[in-house]
Design a protein around this nucleic acid. Structure first.
Length: 584
RNA sequence: GGUCUGGUAGUUCAGUUGGUUAGAAUAUCGGCCUGUCACGCCGAGGGUCGCGAGUUCGAGUCUCGUCCAGACCGCCA
């Protein structure tokens, strides 16, 4: 028997008990006459004491043990002379009588501590050592508990877990597919699913009216802190439902896990905000509602003052920062101007209006705007003395996006964000399609099976960009935690949709024929949602990056530096697959 | 594909205007130490300054290229 207890469970009640513990040597404190060892496993740390006076041979042996040795210790639980209040086992120690090295360790490249001395690169390369650290173990245990909670909740609601294939068919819509060559079908490829979308719809056709799966999805796109090439979705689909039914069901699930893991009660229904409002007020389809500073449209009242830039602009909008005018020296405003002029943000310039403490206005457009004009703008914001207003003008969509970025930047700079707050909402009424400049055609904003709003269907052939979809995103604190839609279950509507997206009937049949055929045999009205498990766990774990809550994540370039993948394959493998690597 | 930041000891970092033998902390190793728990004290070893070229009497420092890492933009139905 390797152990009678874990390293986290012994307390004063166990004093006098003979125990055996196994674990990793966290730290060896050699005091000469005595040696203390901190023994660690995932349950905690227990101190082992060795004494030269009582057992010189064993103590000498203990002094030689290095960090991260795996050892087994037998001894008696004793009360400490000097107690450590910082850890749960701090009142006891083990007086060792036997010691066995189960496995030696080389000196690890970084310290296995909560605050490690290792940098990103080396932690990734030795991920298995990084994962020994307590914060990592806590994160993975949180993920485990959240998965269980989700499964239990959905099970109680009558959802059944059905696995769907991983080797599927590549489709032209959406993200780039990861492809897998088929040996038995020369020149043909599987694709890894971007989501189990069509399969869950087929399950609805098959009559499994409540489906869920916690499932890996794959997208071959460039990465971010909150994006990995493989990530995990809580994927759900329901039949005989309208949008309202889905929102209610999954709002219930969201509230359940907020209560369970953060002890947060949401007594009111989550806010529902149309996409158009989110863009107009927050310049984002995933607004952070932890703070105000909403965007105001100033187009009407800012034109006709002989300021050419405004007069030529399609849109003029602004945001107002409250009671901080003294923080905006010339230098601070220049810095902010530099921020919005960065190529990533893309503004041409930044107009400011200071509402000074004495009630007067100063602005970068004083030449064109008199006190009354500025007062009129200030009124739009209900601005008070000591406030400052920033204006952006230009193209409607772009200006709003810039204002949205500026709003977030200001909130960060001015510390307006309460990190203990959760501000959830549903963003609804997304556009069905958006114009893509590169391909010169409409692309589905969500996916090609998303149902248009019935009252908008008539515009599908005339003004597709104006058609709203029965699509929704779940957003918390400016992070998109999930999204979904009501699907099309009518072949005629689906045909129109493919037509709008520029598919010929033959292409549609070739790509999605199996789904359209299925719909010929009685498809129930259905819809669904997918929550991003990684993002959700990261948020509850207060992590900046989803890498923190994935055991073996990939780096910025999609590489796993631990196993060194992706990597070349042998010529034999390529031959077998009838593949040639093209050299350029 | 683009923008920005970084790469110096095992690790995390400092390194002034281009100028002597490239430092600190931590880790490691050796010695001392009987109540430590970030143990303490003394000592030691440890460097292709990412790589390549250039400017210069002289480059960790300046220039160009390149590789790697990170954040962001494009992209992500």
């Amino acid at each position: 028997m390797y152990r009678t207890h874990t390293c986290g469970e012994l307390r004063v009640e166990n004093i006098g008990t003979k125990v055996t513990l196994s674990g990793w040597l966290q730290k060896n404190r050699d005091l000469g006459g005595m040696t203390f060892i901190d023994l660690r496993d995932r349950y905690g740390i227990t101190q082992i004491a060795f004494n030269m006076e009582t057992n010189a041979e064993l103590c000498t042996q203990a002094r030689k043990l290095g960090r991260e040795f795996v050892i087994q210790v037998t001894g008696e639980v004793a009360e400490r002379y000097s107690k450590n209040k910082k850890i749960p086992t701090g009142e006891i120690e083990i007086i060792a009588t036997d010691l066995k090295v189960l496995s030696k360790s080389e000196v690890p490249p970084f310290t296995i501590e909560d605050q490690t001395d290792g940098g990103e690169d080396i932690l990734m390369k030795y991920r298995y050592l990084d994962l020994r650290r307590n914060p990592r173990q806590q994160a993975l245990m949180l993920r485990h508990k959240m998965s269980i909670a989700v499964r239990n909740y959905l099970d109680k609601q009558g959802f059944i877990d059905v696995e769907t294939p991983v080797l599927i068919k590549s489709t032209p819509e959406g993200a780039r597919d990861f492809v897998v060559p088929s040996r038995m079908n020369e020149g043909n490829f599987y694709a890894l699913p971007q989501s189990p979308q069509v399969f869950k719809q087929l399950l609805m056709v098959a009559g499994y009216d409540r489906y869920y799966q916690i499932v890996k999805c794959f997208r071959d796109e460039d990465l971010r802190a909150d994006r990995q090439p493989e990530f995990t979705q809580i994927d759900c689909e329901m039949a005989f439902v309208e949008q309202e039914d889905i929102l209610n069901t999954f709002e219930g699930m969201a509230k359940h896990i907020f209560k369970m893991f953060k002890n947060v009660d949401f007594n009111e229904p989550f806010k529902r905000m149309p996409f158009s409002e989110a863009m107009a007020k927050y310049g984002s389809d995933k607004p952070d509602l932890r703070f105000g500073m909403e965007i105001n449209n100033l187009t009407e009242i800012s034109k006709g003052k002989n300021f050419k830039i405004f007069d030529d602009a399609e849109y003029i909008g602004g945001i107002c920062a409250v009671n901080v005018v003294d923080k905006f020296s010339r230098k601070a405003i220049d810095k902010l101007t530099d921020f919005v002029k960065k190529p990533q943000i893309g503004a041409q310039g930044l107009v400011w209006i200071k509402y000074d403490a004495d009630g007067t206005f100063k602005s970068s457009i004083d030449k064109f705007f008199g006190a009354e004009d500025l007062q009129q703008i200030a009124q739009k914001f209900d601005a008070k003395p000591n406030d400052i207003i920033f204006l952006i003008s230009g193209n409607y969509d772009k200006s709003l996006k810039i204002l949205g970025d500026l709003r977030l930047e200001l909130a960060k700079e001015l510390n307006l964000i309460d990190n203990n707050k959760f501000a959830p909402l549903w963003v609804v009424d997304f556009p069905l399609v958006e114009w893509n400049e590169e391909t010169n055609r409409f692309h589905a904003m969500h996916h090609p099976f998303t149902s248009p709003k019935p009252q908008d269907i008539s515009m599908l052939e005339t003004e597709p960009a104006k058609v709203r979809a029965n699509a929704y995103d779940f957003v918390v604190n400016g992070v998109e935690l999930g999204g979904g839609s009501i699907r099309i279950h009518d072949s005629e509507v689906q045909r129109k949709m493919f037509d709008t997206l520029g598919f010929t009937p033959e292409e549609a049949q070739n790509q999605f024929g199996f789904l359209m055929n299925a719909f010929k045999y009685g498809a129930p009205p259905h819809g669904g949602i997918a929550y991003g498990l990684d993002r959700w766990v990261a948020m509850f774990n207060n992590s900046e990056s989803i890498k923190d809550v994935i055991a073996f994540p990939k780096n910025n370039s999609g590489k796993d530096v631990m196993i060194d993948s992706p990597s070349p394959v042998s010529k034999e493998q390529l031959d077998e697959l009838k593949l040639l690597i093209k050299k350029d």
